[in-house]
Design a protein around this nucleic acid. Structure first.
Lengths: 235, 235
DNA sequence: AAATTCATTGAACGTTCGTTGAATATTAGC
DNA sequence: GCTAATATTCAACGAACGTTCAATGAATTT
């Protein structure tokens, strides 16, 4: 009994926390059950007892915070109100989706930071991205709906593609891999939440608006004729 | 000698191809050397003979196509010419960076598709993203330079953050994990390169322009006074 | 054709892997 | 305080892991 450190919290929770941190650092296959149980100060057999198997542990880690995130995203999306012109503000819609992450990525949220780093890997993995579909897409559908309402006349496919670009940027940004820091010679810091907060929604809202404008160049009613091939940028 | 299938190509190349495909599907830690050598029809010892160890194989897989991509990206970036107003077209700059991927992601490029799926995982991994830094950032710096030239008066940090958003969207998009297909009920197809080609540059160019406009609202010369906190979107 | 280098094979190394079952400790219900 | 359910420990299983080495085959050089 040298390495065991049984705190007051139950072993089941310690396992979830340790798994979250280690999965985020080295990926699902890069961490063994023994790595996790050792870090949690628990016995190897407890993973299979509490979660069935290693994959069940990953699933539980994944859904634990997804429920919290989904609830708040829905609340914020429902709270987005039309402006004086009767239109929904695109940046406000994007922020309803993004700010719940900002709030939890601060100093106190070490567990949340690990969770976001894990999400980034899951989102970009062919074999694990089904977890994104299962645990997030119901709320994403709601997000798509509100985005569509904020983009009258836009082709629905533009909204889906725009969301796809957004989620790629979002998950990488909150993963905080440190690449931006190195690339910019420490001019930019992944951990600088203010920098993300002031830039993300303007960038994405402008992207969505550009797609909508491209599909229906002038008026929202000229939608049926926008079926031709788009002209593309250059070359 | 039942499972060995020695084609005309050398075992070293067969190993690279098999490793590329399997790493892309299941991740670096999710694939064993025996998985790779079996798929390549080669002996287990050949990985260590040709590449030193498993990590050396990953490095070689990664740099093999990076060199090709870097060369073409540099050529295209150098070929971007100012328009009649003397300014560089933002979409043209983005396309110089993105189109080399489009060209290789078509029907014939099965190996390239695997490679892009691998890049997405490496880019989002804390322990592997150093490979991105090492093999891509020299060319990314050139990309940043040209972007900055196309965004006169913009804060350099905006350009870096914009690139960060862009690379997150780009790597996820070309990973083709299938999540967009499921999310949209098959309305959008990850493999539809035309859909990517017509949307990516407009979306990103508008994002960059919005960041630049936010930092220097009117004229490029009003740069030194833009040090205050930005107003953010909503909430 | 002999010598030398390079590529491949087969077998084995010690270690770690995920998982299991029986035994023990702890908690909760009555 | 006894009982029953839950939680944790301990030891072990067979399989798979990355790596190594001596032996063999093939290709190149002299």
């Amino acid at each position: 009994m040298a390495t065991k450190k049984k705190t007051g919290r139950p072993a089941k929770e310690r396992l979830l926390d340790a798994a979250e941190r280690l999965f985020a650092q080295r990926g699902y296959h890069g961490v063994s059950i023994r790595d996790i149980t050792e870090a949690a100060g628990a016995d190897v057999a407890l993973v299979n007892y509490h979660f069935g198997n290693k994959r069940g542990l990953l699933t539980r880690v994944f859904e634990r915070r997804a429920e919290i995130l989904n609830r708040e995203r829905l609340e914020r999306l429902a709270a987005v109100r039309p402006g004086p012109d009767g239109r929904l503000d695109l940046e406000a819609v994007v922020n309803a989706f993004m700010e719940p992450l900002i709030l939890r990525s601060g100093r106190g949220g070490r567990g949340w930071k690990s969770y976001f780093a894990l999400i980034a890997q899951v989102n970009n993995s062919p074999e694990l991205s089904v977890l994104m579909t299962r645990h997030f897409d119901p709320v994403v559908h709601k997000f798509i709906d509100v985005l569509t309402a904020a983009l009258p006349g836009a082709d629905l496919r533009d909204v889906y593609w725009g969301y796809h670009f957004l989620t790629g940027a979002l998950t990488l940004t909150f993963a905080e891999t440190g690449r931006l820091d190195k690339l910019s010679g420490r001019l930019c810091r992944s951990s600088d939440l203010d920098s993300v907060h002031t830039r993300f929604a303007p960038f994405m809202a402008a992207g969505f608006a550009a797609l909508a404008a491209r599909g229906a160049p002038v008026a929202p009613l000229a939608k049926a004729r926008a079926r031709r091939k788009a002209p593309a940028g250059a070359n």
